[in-house]
Simulated scan of single mutants.
Amino acid sequence: MTYFYARTIEGDFEAVVERTRAALQKHGFGVLTEIDVQATLKAKIGEDFRPYRILGACNPVMAHEALKMESHVGVMLPCNVVVQQTDGGVEVFAVDPAASMSAIENAGLLRHAQTVGEHLRAAVAEV
């Protein structure tokens, strides 16, 4: 089982970040956090790195349902979606929540994570 959904597209990096935000929003996800890994590595350790952005996406209704099923599931939230520049274009990939939630012995939570994953997969496909 893979632990992420991905696709690579052509386009300007920042434009793809914005398209990713729009696709997530269409599927009920907001971006709670944004980490510019390239800028952080440059500022903290002086290293150059490719454009790499981590978006912490959250669908509040789905997160609430997960938290009702498992009080400690918050350590796995929000769902990370990454946009990175590669030699072949701009790659967009999102965590498969079912892969990470399978570590928790809760069948209901796993089914819920699969539903969340369907929405994330659809958002990645639409970017």
Rank of each mutant, 00 (worst) to 15 (best):
Y3H: 13
F4G: 00
Y5R: 03
A6T: 12
A6H: 14
I9F: 01
G11F: 10
D12H: 07
E14V: 04
A15D: 15
A15M: 07
T20C: 08
R21S: 05
L24N: 06
K26C: 00
G28A: 04
G30P: 11
V31S: 04
D36Q: 03
V37E: 11
Q38K: 15
L41Q: 09
L41S: 09
K42L: 11
A43K: 15
K44W: 01
I45M: 14
I45Q: 04
G46M: 00
F49D: 08
P51H: 08
P51N: 12
I54M: 13
G56P: 01
C58M: 08
N59K: 05
N59P: 10
A63T: 04
E65P: 00
A66G: 06
A66C: 02
K68L: 14
M69W: 04
M69L: 15
E70K: 11
S71W: 06
S71Q: 15
V73E: 04
G74I: 05
V75Q: 07
M76L: 15
L77N: 07
L77D: 03
V81M: 03
V81I: 12
V82T: 14
V82R: 00
Q84D: 12
Q84H: 08
Q84N: 03
Q85D: 07
D87A: 14
G89V: 09
E91N: 05
V92Y: 03
F93N: 02
F93M: 13
V95L: 14
D96R: 13
P97M: 05
P97F: 01
S100F: 12
M101N: 04
S102C: 09
A103K: 13
N106G: 04
L109N: 04
L110P: 02
L110M: 11
L110Q: 08
L110G: 00
A113N: 03
Q114D: 08
T115M: 02
T115R: 14
G117F: 06
H119E: 13
L120S: 03
R121D: 02
A122Y: 06
A122P: 01
A125Y: 01
A125D: 13
E126A: 15
E126G: 04
E126C: 02
V127F: 03
